[in-house]
Design a binder for these strands. Structure first.
Lengths: 131, 131
DNA sequence: ATACATGCAAATCATTTGCGCAGTC
DNA sequence: GACTGCGCAAATGATTTGCATGTAT
């Protein structure tokens, strides 16, 4: 027995490609629809399986904004998100990691800090324009 | 027709009480088990319904740490969390809101920032002690 | 040839909802 | 009495999994 994700598959490669070509933090369902256009018989189960494999391989990241479903992101470098309360769009922020935050907290935290997550919520410029 | 949450109920009061008496950020299931000890015939549906009502009334907050389920918190003031990667415990941090973060981001964000969420991940002191 | 990957369908798990009765105002 | 809330059970929706077959190495 080797391990999951050791053999290549057309499906997995396509899934990664789909994610790399978008900045929209799509759901599994959306990825499925995209992959389906190239591989009509692909199954949703395969998409989920590969999203997990790719996440385990750190080639993508699994995101969660409390909507009851997951979103996926091919940008694996540390970065922050802005979520629009109106339309729900999730945008990457071009802001350097605020690593001083971990230090600021160090003494207040009952343990060792390895990472942090920082999301901003508000109204995106598109929605502001529509008001 | 008035609105949800306008009439009191023993169930809702008990649910709020249960949440106020813990700092463990429990799941709906855990709340259900607790309430059940006082009101044996309470239903899980009632617990969910009331958790939503209380959330809408801003008497509690619904949290989500990407575990595929929700957690609830009777501390509604702005505060941050520390999540242990080992045991999963979620602790409130006694750190003042870092409101300068919103300002720091302002120019980088495509929209208006209303709030932010900041979680720290690492190993809690309990787990550190067990290594 | 071996072991991972797939498609399909059934199963799971958290959460939601329809309905008829009970409780509050 | 009018309308909200409840318990129960069935429904939903995202995700997972068992299984027989396909495919990469």
């Amino acid at each position: 027995m080797q391990a999951l994700g050791t053999k290549r598959s057309r499906q997995r490669e396509r899934i990664l490609q789909v994610l790399k070509r978008t900045t929209s933090h799509p759901t599994a369902e959306w990825v499925y629809e995209q992959v389906r256009q190239q591989i009509p018989h692909v199954s949703l189960g395969t998409v989920y399986r590969n999203l997990h494999i790719l996440t385990a391989q750190a080639k993508i990241r699994e995101l969660d904004f409390g909507e009851g479903l997951h979103r996926y992101d091919a940008t694996v470098e540390q970065h922050y998100h802005f979520v629009c309360n109106q339309c729900g769009v999730v945008r990457d922020l071009a802001v350097p990691p605020q690593n001083d935050l971990n230090d600021r907290m160090r003494d207040m935290v009952p343990g060792n800090i390895a990472a942090h997550r920082l999301d901003f919520y508000g109204i995106c410029s598109d929605c502001l324009g529509k008001i």
